[in-house]
């Protein structure tokens, strides 16, 4: 599909600042400035967070349930009032604007496709409420269904579509509003693991193709690492770390980030709290390396790797070793186990 074609100025509502966008050259697609959300007395749901999302980023808000990531997304979408602070999209403040005037579009966790409308009419809905004529809006909707490869099922009702197909329709329905920022609320959580991996590749492809920012809420570390240009790890209503995927994984800012991302051991070493990647730890005492003694609590064979859990003082530590090394050593559950690591692989946590 030729996306440049969609920029036909006649189709743009007079309020959409396309020209302004071209001349001003905003640096950030979305900015949160000291945003707080309180539902009542007590701890806020989102506590004074600030975040800048550069142009054309795939940004993942990652965190455990109840950390405030969905509330943050809903504030961006305008479905939740902001208690304090400001939100900017493309450099324009939109904190108190209604959803439709923000330049955002939201894809809901359960997709929220209108059950009484066909896939095509679902996608055409935003054009319908703007008064676009039937033929015209259906033609446009068809193009967006093509983008998500759903044009062959355009006449189906949502309950006649599989989860993955519904998601594609929901995506098309959001994209047809030509958002500056697309907001996705746990978009892959309802899919089976196989489909999840396929759909996330699809999301990434579409994001690159459109060049707009996607803000994607997830509690899956794998998903965030696979997709994100920018990972924002949240916990207890605040941002723990916001950085590119590699930086977050290699240099977690604190013990929470290291633990939540997984694949890390958080260890007290030389009086400091450090993290060491589990794949850089070895089983057995090695000369010149730091070590920790415990008992082998669990062994999980994972194909290419074997995951060995060493328990010490009720704390679990993980060694990821490649399968040949494991079979050479053949440790057993219940045996004493030593975990070793290079001092240079330690990353000091803040």
């Amino acid at each position: 599909m030729n996306l440049a074609l969609k920029q036909d100025p006649a189709e743009i509502s007079p309020k959409a600042p396309k020209l302004q966008q071209a001349t001003m050259g905003h640096r950030f697609d979305a900015e949160l400035v000291a945003v707080t959300k309180r539902y009542g007395p007590g701890a806020p749901a989102v506590d004074d967070i600030s975040l800048r999302i550069p142009r054309g980023s795939y940004c993942c808000l990652l965190g455990p349930s109840g950390c405030g990531k969905s509330t943050t997304l809903r504030m961006l979408a305008g479905h939740e009032d902001v208690t304090e602070g400001a939100i900017l999209i493309h450099g324009t403040e939109i904190t108190n604007k209604p959803p439709v005037e923000r330049g955002t579009s939201m894809m809901f966790q359960d997709y929220a496709l209108f059950p009484h409308l066909s896939a095509l009419d679902n996608v055409a809905f935003s054009l319908k409420v703007r008064g676009v004529a039937k033929e015209e809006r259906r033609n446009q909707a068809r193009e967006y269904l093509e983008l998500v490869q759903m044009d062959h099922l355009a006449e189906r009702l949502p309950n006649q579509l599989s989860g993955g197909q519904q998601q594609r329709v929901a995506l098309a329905r959001s994209l047809i509003t030509r958002p500056k920022v697309l907001l996705l609320d746990e978009p892959l959580s309802a899919l089976d693991p196989f489909l999840r991996i396929r759909m996330r590749a699809e999301l990434k492809r579409i994001q690159k193709e459109l060049g707009i920012s996607f803000i994607h809420v997830t509690h899956s570390q794998d998903e965030a690492l696979a997709l994100a240009d920018l990972i924002v790890v949240m916990n207890d209503a605040v941002i723990m770390q916001a950085a590119p995927a590699r930086e977050v994984f290699e240099t977690p800012a604190n013990a929470f980030v290291a633990r939540f991302l997984g694949g890390h051991n958080v260890i007290r070493s030389e009086g400091r709290e450090v993290s060491v990647r589990a794949d850089q730890c070895r089983l057995g005492r090695m000369p010149g390396m730091r070590a920790l003694e415990g008992v082998i609590g669990m062994i999980e064979y994972q194909g290419t790797q074997v995951r060995i859990t060493i328990t010490k003082d009720d704390e679990d530590y993980t060694v990821l070793m490649d399968a040949p090394t494991y079979f050479a050593q053949s440790p057993e559950i219940g045996e004493p186990g030593v975990m070793s690591w290079e001092a240079s692989d330690e990353h000091v946590l803040g």
Binding site: V100, S105, F108, A112, V129
Partner: peptide, 18 residues
Amino acid sequence: FNPSYEEAATDLGANARQ
């Protein structure tokens, strides 16, 4: 009634009557 239907409609630009 799933409230996200309404939120989706709002998101897509529908006014209260629509």
